[in-house]
Each structure stands twice: as C-alpha cells, then as structure tokens.
Simulated scan of single mutants.
Amino acid sequence: MSKPRSLVLPPRTRARRLETARGPFVVLDAEPVGGRRGTVLLLPGYTGSKEDFLALLGPLSEAGYRAVAVDGRGQNDTPGPRGRAAYRRKALALDAVAQAAALDDGPVHLVGHSFGGLVARAAAALAPGAFRSLTLLSSGPGRVARPQRIRVRVLRAALAVLPKERVWQAVCWLDSRGEEPDTGDTPELTAFLRRRWMRTRIAQLAGAGRLLLDRQDGTEQLTALPLPLHFAYGADEMVWAPADLSAAADRTGAHRTVIAGAGHSPNVSHPQELTDGLAGFWERVDAPAGVSTAP
C-alpha cells in the first residue's frame, strides 16, 4: 500500500464531499495557482485512499492544474455497501465516470494508481468522452508480479476467516518487507493507516483483490481507446514488471515516463518528478494540432 509521509493538507486544498449521480465520494480538492490548465481526477490503489496523493497535490497545483483525489466506494471516508456487486469492475468504472461529471470541468485528465489504474482503464473504455487523457501510474495490462499475486490471495483468504484487526497486523508485517518498507512512521501516521484499514469495507478489499488477480491482459482494450494514453512508473517498480510496462507502452503507442529511483509509489516518493512527467504529457495532449511541445 502507499503510505503518505505527511497528512498535512497542501495549500489551496480542502477535504469535501463530491456529490455525484452515484452517491457522495469524499475527495481532496486542490485549486491551481494562476489560470487553470486542466483538471485531474486521481484514483488510489489497493488498500489506499485519497491521502496517497497528498504529496502530489501541491506540485500539480503549482503547475496550474486542479487536482482531485478521491476515496472510491467503500474506501476510507467514502461509504460503501457490503455486497459484492458494488465492487465489480463496471460498477467502479461507473463511479469514476460519475466523479468526472460531477467535477463540472469538461473532460478531465484521469490518473489511476496501481489498482486504481484498473478502474481508470475500465472507465475510459466505458465513457471515453468523459476524459481528456488516461495515465496508468504504476499500473498496466497483464498480470501483477507473482509475489503480489500471492499476497493478494493470502489477504483475501484471511479477510474471509479472521478478525479485521488480526489481518491488519499481518498487513503491517508484510508491508515492512514489501514494496513500501517502513520508514519510521509517526504515531499520527500509524493511527491514520490503521483507521483507514478499519474503515475500508471488506467487500471492497475482496473485490479489488479479485480484479488484481484477473488474468485478462487488456492491451487490446488500451490500444482501442480513442484518447491519449500514458504509462508512468518508477524504475524500481515491483508490482508490475517494468519490462512488461515498457512493452505495453510500445505495443499501445503510449507516452511513457520512467522515474529514476522510484518504486511502486512515485506519487509519494517523487511527487515533483512525477508532476513534471504528467504535465509534459498533458501539454502534448492539449497542444494545438501541428504544434510540437518537444524541447
């Protein structure tokens, strides 16, 4: 899971409820500095939340973008039903489409981190006109790496038979040895991470895990999307193999940003470098036809 390094809201950022046609979603909404260059909708990953993007909201705002990070249905502060149907791929995709519409800013740039990338892909395929572009952040077609698949299977099995608190303790142990090792969490951050876990619906965790284990490749679907596509990931990514992400970018003709020194969560570890890559991609997307944005 991504772990924010601070819970302080960046300047010009407020936590609020976003009312949509599919119910309310709690978001962090960051207003841009100066004239607005565009609006970005940010979808978090497995066991994550809107706070995973806290470090990214400031740089995006400074770059002139309104950035809105969302708790998905059943994640953290956003309520969700207990039933399995609410967390199927199409249902989550419809949520993202409704969130984009409720922002009332025309087509928005869509960014999905890890599991959020699976939701973003489905949303873009369902309603491409709702989005200006699609960025898969540390996410891609194909299967996740074997260690992560094993972890997800174990987590889903444990949630079915053990108290949530016991599973949380196991998650902490695994994370200290996984893609986001412990870096000396403050008591405030430790309390937040536990609270987030306890607030997230078991059905959401089980449904998200099921989608992560899906064997469907998805490259053809991405190639068929009628909107600009971007893969952004750390050079040390370990949930999806970097070689697989590079190959997917080649096969789909997507723009690509590889962040040196970053692992699975460049949104936490390298927010400025990620912002530079995102903004460079969006500048190309928004450039008038025939105008080059190359340096």
Rank of each mutant, 00 (worst) to 15 (best):
A98N: 08
V161N: 02
G80L: 00
V97N: 10
L212Y: 01
F192Y: 15
E51H: 15
G23F: 01
G207L: 00
E220Y: 03
A241D: 11
A232N: 06
G261W: 15
D105C: 15
L222M: 11
L205N: 04
R195M: 06
P107V: 14
H230F: 03
L162A: 11
F115G: 05
M1I: 01
V26Y: 06
A86R: 09
L28Y: 14
G142M: 01
F131V: 06
L110K: 12
R166W: 11
V8D: 15
A125S: 15
L43R: 09
A124C: 12
A262G: 15
S49E: 07
T200I: 04
D104G: 15
F192N: 04
A123C: 13
G112N: 11
G277T: 12
G184M: 06
L110V: 09
R84L: 02
R22W: 00
A145S: 12
L174R: 14
P79Y: 01
E31L: 08
L213F: 13
G129P: 04
A157T: 06
A208D: 10
F281G: 03
E51A: 14
V97G: 12
W173C: 06
L134S: 03
R195W: 08
G129I: 07
K164H: 08
S246R: 15
L28K: 04
S139A: 13
S61W: 13
A294E: 13
L162V: 05
D105Y: 03
A123I: 11
P11V: 11
A123S: 12
D214N: 11
R196Y: 00
W173L: 13
P32Y: 05
L227W: 04
Y46T: 07
H264M: 10
R132F: 02
L103N: 15
M1D: 02
P32R: 05
R82N: 00
Y87A: 02
D52H: 15
P288V: 10
T135A: 11
L193T: 05
D95I: 05
L94G: 11
W168M: 03
P44I: 04
P187V: 03
G72W: 05
A124H: 11
R151K: 13
L60V: 09
R215S: 12
A130D: 06
G178D: 14
L245C: 01
P226I: 14
T47E: 05
V108R: 15
R166T: 09
L213M: 09
G142C: 02
H109F: 08
V70R: 12
Q169H: 13
A85S: 06
D185G: 02
R210N: 06
L222E: 07
R84A: 05
R177G: 00
I150D: 09
A208K: 00
V291S: 05
F131E: 07
L189N: 03
V33T: 07
L229F: 04
A120M: 11
P24F: 03
E237C: 05
S49Q: 10
H230A: 01
